[in-house]
Design a protein around this nucleic acid. Structure first.
Length: 809
DNA sequence: CTTTCCGCCCTTTTT
DNA sequence: GGGCGGAAAG
């Protein structure tokens, strides 16, 4: 990688390259600021890109222009995106512009790029190439043990609290030793925390593992501690581009800072105390720093909670003197009504540079508002509206439903299933976080990285082998006493004086792990066949008895778990097909770094459901933002945090600006959370949307007069507002409990099973909620048979026959 | 020693 | 509505 040919023109502040202009077509159709952002050449460029202003286009065209003008070889480009999916899309779009030249660029997320660097350099600082990656679940499990060992819970240190503190510290590039030095050790809780933090780092190192935050932080550490290594990457990457810059944290900022430093050649050690680099003014660098392009929008900064520092973007011009700033304000995505709503809402955030998105596509449809009696009622409205939009020709894949918290997805899901609306949930209990998947991956990890004790502890009694905590601890003790790893100790069941049953159980586990290692990691360094990962996984699942245990179980969920495992095997084979040279470690790395949005294939024909956070960077013809209520958005917990409500407003803004043509804002009057039903208030953000932009199908006011709860926030604050609400409505009479009983649980807990009901076109049925109707058609098969029903009141609905509350007449 | 069952807790967003 | 920890049962 050091042999990259020198570019014809190095970064420098020279203007657009002169003759030829091979990229005239790259500028076609771009507006003036967009062109500027593509052709500007200089050390630093900040593109302030409002929502929907075509920044991906600008970025890809900028890269293409660098390549076509032969200003850079593909290998000299490093582009950082927020998700792996965005990276894939960018690579593809650049590929369409420049063809083969797209090969060799690094386009990836911060985490993936760091893993690549760390795999190459791990040996420099006490890790091996085969390190594994701990996700938050793994970290928490480890911390849980450490907190217990240190009896730190007595000081109010829960694993979760410790985890988030450590994460915050690492995002600030603080390490365990550094923190310990300045910690207030007279505080016993603080002392405990320092101990746990230190042990946590030692455990990670011993396990040859990095957690998510370490991937970034340790790379920065590597670059600072070994300048000659950093120089290798500085020489290589001459053009660095970072998307979603407003969501970078300090560690990511520092990483970019390190990569864009000038190379001083054989100058003396350029480090001063505090890790700051100091150059003598007259010392001419051997090579100037790489050119840096960042794209961001401070109005879309929604990750402060995980350390994103908005100052990275607001102070860019200070950090990179002479930086050029380009503003993209013209929106190519949404109608004016949607933009006006977005502008109005975000305008309530003080302390921001005023920026107004505009479009020339016209006002478009009004925003639709709806207030349901319960979250089920709200969900039914969404499902019905999805169907109505579908009939107007909008594809399911062009619709999305957003919510603030993952738990809100359940009610939506129930109704969507019943209404036979195809949907897909992004994130949530993610595939890779399911217990059986984590178990299977732990088996693979135990093979790939035998030092990873956490992985072994996880699987040692899965399936149940009669190896409980006590036995596990005695294995660990034996290993420590003999100077063995936990993995190696499994081979000495007899020597540790375990009972015969346990010896057999441990011996079997040892044998299957060994067998899988031979298959997947052939000795003598030869490459394992591409099928090795899939075969090895299948072998582990069968040989360990994991599959059999699930099969023998009569828990209905275990059937689904088996299917998930099959899916994982399929994923691994698919991986092998796409990466014939891919190793077991490559597979584990990829799996560890997938993000929520990555699951979003362009699988046509399904409505997407996701949290507002996951929605960032995506766009849809029709968008439903659900649960627009106080305590949900803004979320209750954010209310007390400094900057919390403002960040929630940005989150809402992100949701609104995802919509191209149609936007729905829905809420419910009551919401059941954790068994209890409580009254929900309309979100303050609703009041910030100019009323004339909203067509309330059922406004909070209407619901109040009909449903009869106490006065609600909006009515209290805006008497006479809210469109159709009449001020002379009778005061609410019904006691609260009545309305709650009536509306809270419109979905029976028990799912009916009409699996054997025979229906044909022309049959008449009665539905519990919708009344009588006539079957127009029946589609689908088996459990997924769908009745298309025209109800006597004119409504047309699709019902999943198996579970719909219907009877044949 | 392990498993199972019961009662208690909480619930933001994620690479 | 579910995950987790503690107590009782195999």
């Amino acid at each position: 990688m050091t042999d990259a040919p020198a570019p014809l023109i190095v970064g420098g502040a020279s203007g657009p390259h002169g003759d030829g202009r091979p990229d005239e077509d790259l500028l076609a159709g771009l507006n003036p600021p967009q062109r500027e952002a593509v052709v500007y050449r200089g050390q630093a460029l900040l593109i302030v890109a409002g929502a929907g202003s075509g920044k991906t286009r600008v970025l890809t065209h900028r890269i293409a222009s660098l390549l076509r003008g032969r200003e850079a070889w593909p290998s000299q480009i490093l582009a950082i995106t927020f998700t792996n999916k965005a990276a894939g899309e960018m690579r593809e779009r650049v590929g369409q512009l420049v063809g083969q030249h797209a090969q060799g660029m690094w386009i990836s997320t911060f985490h993936s790029a760091c893993v690549r660097i760390l795999r190459r350099e791990a040996e420099q600082f006490g890790f091996t190439k085969s390190f594994t990656i701990y996700d938050s679940g793994d970290s928490r499990a480890l911390l849980k043990r450490l907190v217990k060992d240190h009896e730190a819970d007595a000081f109010g240190l829960t694993p979760g609290a410790v985890q988030s503190r450590i994460s915050k510290l690492k995002n600030e590039l603080s390490d365990a030793e550094g923190y310990a030095r300045q910690a207030n050790m007279s505080d016993p809780a603080e002392r405990k925390f320092v101990e746990v933090f230190g042990d946590y780092q030692r455990a990670l190192r011993k396990a040859n593992a990095f957690d998510f935050d370490d991937l970034i932080g340790q790379t920065v550490y590597l670059f600072r501690a070994f300048p000659h290594i950093a120089d290798v990457y500085r020489r290589r990457f001459r053009h660095i581009l970072v998307d979603e810059y407003q969501d970078t944290n300090h560690a990511q900022y520092a990483l970019i800072r390190e990569l864009t430093r000038p190379i001083v050649g054989k100058a003396a050690e350029p480090y001063a105390a505090g890790g700051m680099m100091i150059f003598e003014p007259e010392q001419a660098p051997e090579l100037p720093g790489a050119s840096l392009t960042v794209v961001g929008d401070s109005d879309q900064s929604i990750y402060a909670f995980r350390g994103a520092d908005i100052r990275n973007i607001t102070e860019f011009e200070r950090d990179y003197p002479g930086a050029k700033v380009v503003l993209l304000e013209q929106n190519y995505r949404s109608t004016q009504n949607i933009l006006s709503a977005a502008n109005a809402v975000i305008g309530h955030n003080f302390d921001r540079k005023d920026k107004r998105l505009w479009t020339d596509v016209g006002a478009g449809e009004k925003i639709v508002g709806f207030t349901g009696y319960s979250q089920h009622d709200e969900a039914q409205f969404v499902a019905d509206e999805v169907e109505a939009l579908r009939r107007t020709g909008i594809d399911y894949a062009q619709m999305a439903v957003f919510y603030r918290t993952n738990s809100q997805s359940r009610a939506l899901e129930e109704i969507f299933i019943r209404s036979a609306v195809p949907y897909k949930i992004m994130g949530g209990t993610r595939f890779y976080e399911r217990a059986e998947i984590k178990d299977a991956l732990a088996y693979l990890t135990a093979v790939a990285n035998p030092a990873d004790e956490m992985a072994l502890r996880r699987i040692v009694n899965r399936p149940k082998r009669g190896i409980g905590d006590v036995t596990v601890e005695s294995i660990a003790r034996y290993a420590a006493a003999q100077g063995l790893t936990f993995r190696d100790a499994l081979g000495f069941g007899a020597e540790m004086g375990l009972g015969p049953k346990l010896q057999v159980a441990i011996g079997r586990l040892d044998a299957v792990l060994t067998e899988a290692s031979e298959l997947m990691l052939p000795a003598s360094g030869e490459l394992a066949p591409p099928s090795a990962v899939g075969d090895g996984l299948a072998l582990l699942l069968a040989g360990s008895g994991y599959r059999d245990a699930l099969r023998a179980s009569r828990d209905a969920q275990d059937e689904a778990r088996l299917e998930n495992l099959d899916e994982l095997v399929a994923v691994s084979r698919e991986f092998a097909r796409n990466n014939p040279e891919g190793t077991l470690l490559d597979f584990l790395t990829e799996v560890a770094l997938v993000s929520d949005a990555d699951g979003l294939d362009d699988e046509s024909g399904t409505v997407s459901m996701m949290t507002l956070h996951t929605a960032k960077g995506l766009e849809y013809d029709a968008v439903f933002i659900t649960g627009v209520e106080e305590d949900l958005i803004p979320h209750r917990i954010s209310a007390g945090e400094p900057g919390g409500p403002a960040e929630e407003r940005r989150l809402f803004y992100v949701g609104v600006t995802r919509a191209r043509k149609r936007l729905y804002l829905t809420l419910a009057m009551t919401r059941a959370q954790f068994g209890e039903v409580s009254v929900a208030m309309p979100s303050r953000f609703l009041q910030e949307v100019p009323p004339e932009l909203v067509d309330w199908r059922q406004s909070p006011g209407d619901v109040n007069s009909r449903g009869g709860t106490q006065s609600r926030a909006l009515n209290a604050r805006r008497p006479g507002g809210w469109g159709s609400r009449r001020t002379d409505d009778p005061p609410p009479l019904m006691p609260k409990s009545t309305s709650l009983e009536r509306f809270a649980n419109r979905i029976p807990a028990k799912v009916r099973d009409n699996g054997d009901m025979q229906l044909a076109t022309g049959d008449r049925i009665r539905h519990d909620d919708f009344g009588e109707g006539r079957i127009d058609a029946v589609t689908g098969e088996g459990a997924k048979r769908i009745a298309h029903v025209r109800f006597d009141n004119g409504a047309v609905k699709k019902l999943l026959i198996k579970i719909a509350p219907i009877e044949k007449l």
